[in-house]
Amino acid sequence: MSTSPNSSARKVQEALGLRLRNLRKDAGLTGRELAAATGWHFTRISKLEHGVQTPTDADIRAWCAACGAGDQEADLVAQARAIESMYVEYRRRGSAGMKQLMLAFQKTYETAEQFRIYEHNVIPGLFQTPEYIRAMLTFWMRFLNTSNDIDEAVAARMQRQTILYEGRRKFTVVLEENALRTWFGTAETMAGQLDRLLSLMNLPNIALGIVPAMIERQGVGSAGFWMFDDKLVTLETPTASIEITQPQEIRLYDRMFDLLRQSAVYGPDARALIIRTQSEMNTSN
């Protein structure tokens, strides 16, 4: 496999190479000894360890077998598979219109049973009103210079929300208070969005927590992220979607989500925060 063209994936590739090198050293093998054990040319060992090439599944199996590290195989395979797919540019994915971005991960949404969502400055897409969606996507269409299919994009996102009402799925959501106060659209749009949050909190399969702005807290999230079961974590930059499938990385996100969850308030306290935000918004207008 060739070297990935983007810097984010390249860093992951280099980290994978470092893990392979450490396995070899822990096994007490030189590069030439590992090459002999696997039947490869010794220069291939160097390319894999320095992240110049990404190993195939077969390469990882052979490497782990030679190093007596079979317990590391699954995690290394997941890390290798993530390299080419983890970073997807929105402009490339959205070249056919914003609707295609809204349909990303459709299969994942349909099959996942447990959703864990953390957002620090936006209401999660599954909870958004049509007006909020329209205001937000209008900005992103201009920013990314995608074709204008706003009606189809809004409809696609709203259609996805039907999974909220299928009782077999569980949604644990943690929002920073700032997400309630970051406006997309008009005051009326935001008021309707906050009403929508209050309504969704009544669903038995939704646990919505809000982290107050000025409290001593267990952890600080640097970016919003979504966890689908224990199989996938996604997070977004202004230009791309990053997809994480490596079990070791997913476990770290699990720890971070738990820390953020501990800092949130729920039930009546969360409702009070939302209602207070609504009241302050009405007062300022």
Rank of each mutant, 00 (worst) to 15 (best):
M1Y: 06
P5T: 08
S7F: 10
S7D: 13
S8I: 15
A9L: 02
Q13K: 01
Q13M: 07
G17H: 03
L18G: 00
K25I: 02
D26L: 00
L29V: 03
T30H: 00
E33M: 02
W40L: 00
W40Y: 12
F42Q: 12
R44N: 02
I45C: 00
H50V: 00
T54M: 00
T54P: 00
A58V: 13
R61W: 01
A62C: 01
C64I: 04
A66R: 04
C67T: 15
A69P: 03
A69E: 03
G70D: 09
D71K: 09
Q79G: 02
E84N: 12
S85H: 12
Y87L: 07
Y87D: 07
R92C: 01
G94H: 04
G94M: 06
S95V: 11
M98D: 01
M102T: 05
F105W: 09
Q106T: 14
Y109N: 10
T111F: 01
A112L: 09
Q114H: 15
R116G: 01
R116E: 12
E119R: 13
E119N: 14
N121G: 15
I123P: 06
G125A: 07
L126P: 05
F127S: 03
P130W: 07
P130Q: 07
E131R: 10
E131F: 03
Y132P: 05
Y132D: 04
I133Q: 06
M136D: 01
L137S: 03
W140I: 05
R142N: 08
N145I: 02
N148Q: 07
D149F: 04
D149V: 12
A153I: 04
A155R: 11
A156M: 06
A156K: 08
R157M: 05
L164G: 08
Y165K: 10
G167Y: 10
V174A: 07
E177I: 11
N178R: 14
A179V: 11
R181Q: 15
T182G: 02
M190Q: 14
G192V: 09
R196A: 11
R196H: 14
R196N: 13
N202V: 12
L203N: 06
I206S: 10
A207T: 15
V211A: 04
A213G: 15
A213C: 09
I215N: 09
Q218E: 13
V220D: 06
G221E: 10
A223I: 14
M227Y: 08
M227N: 10
D229I: 12
K231E: 15
V233F: 06
A240N: 10
E243D: 10
I244M: 12
I244E: 04
T245A: 10
Q248M: 03
Q248D: 11
I250T: 07
R251D: 05
R251W: 03
R251F: 01
R255F: 07
R255Q: 11
D258S: 13
L259N: 08
L260K: 08
R261C: 01
R261V: 03
R261I: 05
Q262K: 13
S263I: 11
V265F: 01
V265Y: 02
Y266M: 03
P268G: 04
P268L: 02
D269P: 01
A270R: 08
R271E: 14
R271Q: 14
L273P: 02
L273G: 04
I275H: 05
T277M: 05
T277D: 03
Q278P: 05
S279N: 13
E280A: 14
M281R: 13
N285M: 08
